[in-house]
């Protein structure tokens, strides 16, 4: 059991240390700033409520990320967002905006990488972000998502391919001299 001041001290330490990276992860996952902020707040409110259950402090980071992913899964279920997302990567590619639109977006400073992520189904996006942003190993990702390591690798591979295609396409189009 914590004393109140100990609990608060630990909570503040976690907030200072992990808030920014959790927000990054949440934003990349959902693609909306407001929702990302809500997710982080929900994560920390959950953490505050159940801080006593955190037995090993060196696992706090992983624990917070798990809460966040859980909250996100909840959010998706509640809002039915999953249905609105592209079911397949192929479809996502077909649906991508026209070349002029993409170049304009890039030049106007919009997050083109996020647009690529937004088109990814969560099955691909989640392990990709867990490895690339959360910094987990593929084996740890497989364990946390309870899927085989091979599945994690193939999903990351596909996620990377789609993003690479999207970014390459933008690079080529800019090099080809699109006039705005």
């Amino acid at each position: 059991m914590f004393r109140n001041d100990e609990k608060k001290e630990l909570y503040e330490l976690l907030a200072h240390t992990h808030a920014a990276e959790l927000y990054r992860f949440a934003y990349r996952l959902c693609g909306e700033r407001e929702t990302a902020q809500d997710l982080v707040q929900e994560t920390f409110s959950e953490a505050w409520r159940s801080l006593e259950s955190l037995r090993e402090r060196d696992k706090a980071r992983s624990w917070l990320f798990s809460i966040l992913r859980y909250r996100y899964a909840h959010l998706q279920r509640d809002s039915g967002r999953r249905e609105r997302k592209m079911e397949t990567l192929e479809l996502a590619e077909k649906e991508a905006g026209g070349p002029e639109e993409e170049v304009l977006e890039r030049l106007s400073g919009r997050d083109y990488l996020q647009k690529g992520l937004d088109h990814l189904d969560n099955r691909f996006k989640e392990p990709f972000l867990m490895v690339f942003l959360e910094g987990l190993s593929c084996a740890e990702t497989a364990r946390q998502l309870d899927i085989p390591l091979g599945t994690v690798l193939s999903r990351i591979h596909r996620a990377r391919s789609l993003l690479r295609k999207k970014l390459d396409r933008l690079d080529n189009k800019e090099d080809n001299g699109y006039e705005i």
């Binding site: 503040e12 907030a15 200072h16 808030a19 920014a20 990054r24 990349r28 700033r33 707040q41």
Partner: peptide, 15 residues
């Protein structure tokens, strides 16, 4: 992926 602007109010609201 790390290039995400963090809202200034985030820390305050969490604390």
């Amino acid at each position: 992926l790390r290039r995400v602007e963090i809202p200034e109010s985030l820390g305050v609201s969490l604390l």
